[in-house]
């Protein structure tokens, strides 16, 4: 068994070693999986770069923190603004040098290091065949007399859970703890990650689940199921974007830069809606799939810069904990 394995790994090593230059991209597991956008992106990029794109998947931040300046990554894709403060402090990234003045995202973007490739908002998803009158605002949800049960993710272990508590903070400011107390009475349970929550919701366990405004698009396009909708709140929704950056230790800086501009190309951007189930960051609205154009969208977008997100996260997680442990 072990011999077989080592032969196998040796073969892999050899086959990698004799090939063209390799661009190493660190990405989250969902991104590189067969059902994520990764494989297609690799295929399209390899057509134009005369190189091999190698994904290394797994938890990005812990890995980057361990590796620091010795990282083997040329490009890192899949970070978000709630963690970029720490990532930037590592000092391992290089300016992307792309033009971000005309991105198709709802906020102004002038970060020199991190480049957004997709976006969405946090939102509660509900089944419109069962919940006829969904709340129209966060306030209405918190104060509703109906017995609405929600499943959310833990902000201590999940990036979407963290986005939720920041969302609440951005709406309620100094009154956020009170809001959490009201929210706690609506919450059926809290899960470690998004998958557990969403799995429980699709089993019919709860009325609403914390997810993204773009989630219904999956059900409409892939399953032809129009019963899932995002509840749009009048206070606005927290903006969620995923980012890419190139490292300054890269041995293939030219390829890395090429990949950064590929991210903003139409080829890449067109793969995002149905590959990552989110809005692409640089694609004209008329090039989106029709289902995405028709998705109900919030009027107002709430967003914390990475400094603010960093400043608030510990405070707001503590408020959340206190309220939920009552």
């Amino acid at each position: 068994m072990k011999i077989l394995l080592s032969v196998f790994f040796a073969l892999v090593t050899v086959s990698v070693a004799c090939a063209k230059p390799t661009l190493t991209v660190y990405a989250p597991d969902y991104f590189t999986s067969e059902w994520g956008p990764g494989p297609k992106i690799k295929q399209e990029f390899e057509k134009i770069c005369d190189c091999d794109l190698l994904y290394i998947s797994g938890d990005l931040m812990p890995r980057l923190m361990i590796e620091g300046k010795r990282t083997k990554a040329d490009v890192v894709i899949g970070l978000n603004t709630d963690v970029t403060f720490k990532a930037r402090k590592l000092g391992i990234f290089e300016a992307h040098k792309q033009d971000t003045s005309s991105l198709s995202i709802p906020i102004k973007w002038n970060d020199k290091i991190f480049l957004p490739f997709d976006w969405s908002h946090t939102a509660f998803i509900y089944d419109n065949t069962k919940l006829k009158n969904p709340p129209q605002s966060f306030d209405e949800l918190l104060n509703s007399k109906d017995d609405i049960k929600i499943i959310i993710q833990d902000p201590r272990t999940s990036i979407s859970g963290l986005a939720l508590v920041l969302w609440v903070k951005s709406i309620y400011g100094s009154k956020s703890e009170e809001a959490f107390t009201k929210l706690a009475s609506k919450v059926l349970t809290v899960t470690k990650g998004w998958s557990e929550s969403y799995g429980m919701f699709t089993q019919g366990e709860a009325d609403m689940v914390l997810s993204y405004t773009t989630s219904p698009a999956y059900h409409i396009i892939a399953e032809n199921d129009k019963s899932k909708s995002a509840a749009i709140f009048s206070e606005g929704h927290y903006f969620f974007t995923e980012l890419a950056a190139m490292t300054n230790s890269s041995k293939e800086p030219k390829l890395a830069k090429e990949f950064m501009s590929f991210i903003l190309s139409d080829t890449f951007q067109r793969m995002i809606p149905t590959g990552n189930w989110s809005f692409p960051s640089n694609l004209a609205r008329d090039k989106l799939p029709e289902e995405f154009i028709n998705l109900p969208m919030p009027q107002k977008v709430l967003f914390y810069t990475e400094e603010d997100a960093q400043k608030y996260r510990d405070i707001v997680i503590q408020e959340w904990l206190t309220a939920f442990q009552k």
Binding site: D29, Y30, S57
Partner: peptide
């Protein structure tokens, strides 16, 4: 930390299927 997109095990595939809705 050690995952490799091309060498997944069955439990990992289950998680991946779930994260892909």
């Amino acid at each position: 930390l050690f995952s490799n997109p091309n060498h997944s095990t069955l439990p990992m595939e289950i998680y991946r299927l779930m994260t892909a809705y």
